[in-house]
Design a protein around this nucleic acid. Structure first.
Length: 498
RNA sequence: GCACCGAUGGCGAAGUGGCUAACGCGCUGGUCUGCAAAACCAGUAUUCAUGGGUUCAAAUCCCAUUCGGUGCUCCA
């Protein structure tokens, strides 16, 4: 069992990640705010956290993973109001879509998926504890704030130095009266919308209102994992202020270290720029599926650059990832098909063992997904080469399959669910009135049933037997146009959707 | 403005003091094939943004410059 050396934002060093005080590693990862469909930047973070949990479990470590769902916040309230819906009605569809997208991308479900709105009492209790220490204070409008001056360690995660900021300076921000400009909201008093209707709120001991964003994570993490736990993960943009504030609240209340280890996944750029709707480079998973890209290729691409490096998403790279997966799947199928000589080829055996060792070592070294994938490529080449020469042994095949299983336990791209997922996306788009967004090529490709393809392939095989190559080639051209690729192998004809 | 990160072949990218600079994709040629596809073989950076420095030795450490990105406000 390899132990994972993971970069810890808090210490700025690589540290061994291990459970303390419990058999399972307790980890918390900030989840989605369900006000819209998730975009590929969101999913880069969730995918790398997925790699982390898959790798730990593969190494024999139990994991207790919490991912929250933020189902109340300013954007949700605003959008729900605009849609004329209650917030839970509004968020339900996006929450459902989020979990569907997680499944499409092969992201495992965390052990706990708490919703913010179902943990209001814990948040209130936490704020009350802070109030009892005079760390939380109430302003005239009924909101509650956190007094940053009372937490000297503030800034320890994001390495910010707030000495230059005057404590206690009275700065008016918005309509609220805070004691210091940086003090952040723990509880927001109920407001009235433009049409005089009060916004959604909870009646609690703190007054009527709703929780601040940061307190949600502190309360849910603490109630599910305890006051101290092993790892907290999230996107790099959450480091400040969100995670910094979580630490301040939680450690002020408990007097203990909140999370020992912090992991931050760096940003995803699209075509060299930060994703934004105005730049026209903003993509949800569903957008990409409708353009004809495969879910597996998106997963593989987003994992191809290690989490601690900023990654640039391009369509060229996406097509490269698609081809890379094809090679892996073709290889996997070849090994499964069998028909190898008895025994083992020692050179391949050595290459297989080397790949297995390097794969695990690469991931154990701060989740170096790029190096892990490279290790597998070398095995693939050695084995294909040997199989071409007729020297690959049945024992080699067994060993190779074990390594591929290990690989796929983390990367999860070998099993082909792409056609099914793309079809589901098409059905969804039609139901949403967005069917016209699907690319024409995709519609043609999906329109062809397996039986129809089989019939055409059989006709082509017959034509070839009678040496009617013109007809055979015409069929191949027709299928190619629909994204179907034919392979004439020694042991038969195969086809696949490109 | 302040802070932080990055710059490696046509593209993506690993490597952070010492073997011929991984790996994937692409491209070129070859093997196989009726032709393709798949697969394999060979080739594709004498060189790691630029300029200086440290060292017996640097893509890897230091300084400067240029360019790109991010945070400082909601954000994965």
């Amino acid at each position: 069992m390899a132990s994972l050396e993971l970069f810890n934002t808090l210490s700025g060093k690589l540290e061994t990640l291990e459970p303390v005080g419990a058999p399972a590693l307790r980890m918390y990862a900030c989840g989605p705010t369900v006000y819209d469909y998730g975009h590929i930047g969101n999913f880069r973070t969730f995918l790398h956290v997925d790699v982390l949990r898959r790798f730990l479990r593969q190494q024999g470590m139990a994991v207790e993973h919490v991912m929250n769902v933020t189902d109340v916040d300013d954007k949700i309230i605003r959008n729900a109001l605009a849609a004329g819906k209650g917030i839970s009605d509004y968020t339900a569809r996006y929450e459902k879509a989020f979990f569907e997208d997680m499944d499409s991308l092969g992201i495992e479900r965390p052990e706990h998926l708490p919703r913010a709105t179902e943990h209001i009492p814990e948040m209130v209790t936490l704020i009350e504890r802070l109030a009892a220490k005079d760390i939380a204070y109430r302003t005239e409008d009924g909101s509650w704030y956190f007094r940053i001056a009372r937490f000297p360690d503030y800034g320890k995660l994001s390495k910010k130095d707030f000495d230059g900021i005057e404590d206690g300076a009275r700065v008016d921000v918005d309509e609220y009266e805070k004691d210091a400009a940086r003090d952040f909201a723990l509880w927001k008093a109920v407001k009235t919308g433009p049409d005089g209707v009060p916004e959604p709120s909870w009646q609690t001991a703190l007054g009527a209102g709703r929780p601040g964003w940061h307190i949600e994570c502190s309360a849910m993490a603490t109630s599910l994992l305890g006051e101290s736990f092993d790892l907290h993960a999230g996107g790099e943009d959450l480091m400040f202020p969100h995670h910094e504030n979580e630490i301040a609240q939680s450690e002020s209340a408990s007097g203990h270290t909140f999370a020992r280890h912090w992991m931050h996944v760096r940003f995803l750029l699209v075509e060299g720029k930060k994703m934004s709707k105005s730049e026209g480079n903003f993509y949800t998973l569903r957008d990409l599926l409708l353009k004809g890209h495969r879910a597996s290729a998106i997963r593989y691409l987003l994992l191809s650059v290690p989490y601690r490096h900023q990654m640039n998403f391009t369509f060229e790279a996406l097509s490269a990832a698609t081809n890379a997966i094809d090679r892996l799947r073709t290889f996997h199928a070849r090994i499964l098909r069998g028909g190898f000589v008895a025994g083992a080829n020692e050179a391949v055996r050595a290459a297989t063992a080397k790949a297995a060792a390097e794969f695990t070592a690469a991931l154990a070294n701060d989740l170096n997904t790029a190096e892990a994938a490279a290790a597998i490529s070398e095995m693939v080449r050695a084995a294909n080469s040997s199989a071409d020469a007729g020297t690959l042994g049945a024992e080699n095949a067994d060993e190779i399959l074990r390594v591929l299983t290990t690989f796929d336990g983390v990367f999860a791209v070998l099993v082909d669910r792409d056609a099914e997922l793309t079809k589901a996306a098409l059905v969804w788009a039609q139901a949403e009135g967005r069917g016209d967004e699907a690319s024409a090529e995709l519609v043609a490709r999906m329109g062809q049933s397996d039986a129809e393809i089989d019939a055409l392939v059989a006709e082509r095989t017959q034509a070839k037997k009678t040496r009617n190559f013109a007809r055979a080639d015409a069929i191949r051209v027709e299928l190619t146009a629909k994204g179907i690729v034919i392979e004439d192998a020694k042991d038969g004809v195969r086809w696949k959707r490109k």
